[in-house]
């Protein structure tokens, strides 16, 4: 199944690149740089998906105590952090020519940065613990608390920023049909990418576990 999906992924991502660079027309005001959006938004969507799955499987792990669910949760966290970093890199690249600044303390940007910090902390907590049931339990606890914290952070940053004048307001864009198509293709390709990375990473963790069992048994 992994092989099949991989064979599907290669042309899918190429097609997404084709749609983003050639099929979609340039944006009227932002120009060519807007094309980074197709990947920026797709990566952001993947983060949300990945962190939601992390939360879900953390809860399931605490309820069942089955190690498989920890593998799901931690793999999702690792992939989520990679894509969150991509969002944080592509965002300023787009913002510099369009907003004329790399970064603003806008609620969405700031919340995203804190989200990234929380999940990096999750990975660091894991990295600093010896392999045991305790490690899985504690990371599940942190995965749940981190997820609960995100809406509170968003609320607080929004209030914090309203004290100062809001420099940039986001306005809804009227998307050209080709742009919409490119967006959907990119979203689909990235979701497929996530599924494959999850399968690979979970497979690796399973192998790691089996090998350590075997070595322990010798």
């Amino acid at each position: 199944m992994r092989a099949m999906l991989l064979v599907l992924l290669y042309p899918a991502m190429l097609f997404a690149l084709y749609c983003a660079f050639i099929l979609a027309p340039p944006e009227r005001e932002m120009g060519e740089v807007q094309r980074i959006f197709y990947f920026h938004i797709s990566a952001a969507w993947l983060c949300m998906l990945a962190f939601f799955i992390l939360f879900l499987f953390s809860v399931v792990y605490l309820l069942t105590g089955n190690r498989t669910y920890d593998v799901w949760a931690s793999s999702s966290a690792e992939i989520g952090v990679i894509f969150a970093s991509l969002v944080l890199i592509t965002g300023p690249l787009w913002a510099k020519p369009v907003w004329n600044t790399w970064w603003t303390w806008d609620p969405r940007l700031t919340t995203f940065l804190i989200l990234w910090l929380i999940y990096v902390a999750y990975l660091l907590l894991r990295a600093n613990m010896p392999e045991s049931d305790k490690k899985y339990k504690l990371s599940a606890v942190f995965g749940i608390l981190g997820f609960i914290d995100v809406p509170i952070v968003f609320m607080s940053i929004r209030w914090w920023r309203t004290i100062h004048p809001v420099v940039i307001t986001s306005t809804g864009m009227n998307l050209d049909p080709d742009m919409k198509a490119a967006m959907f293709v990119a979203l689909a390709a990235f979701t497929l990418f996530y599924v494959i990375l999850m399968l690979l990473r979970m497979g690796q963790k399973k192998l790691d576990y089996e090998i350590s069992l075997r070595l322990g048994g010798l």
Binding site: R2, A3, L6, L9, Y10, M13, I196, L200, G203, Q204, L207, E210, I211, R214
Partner: peptide
């Protein structure tokens, strides 16, 4: 993609060995 595919192949080999 080639990198990811290589990872996949390697993993399959180890799975088979195990």
């Amino acid at each position: 993609f080639i990198y990811i595919f290589a990872l996949h192949r390697k993993q399959e080999a180890i799975e088979k060995k195990l």
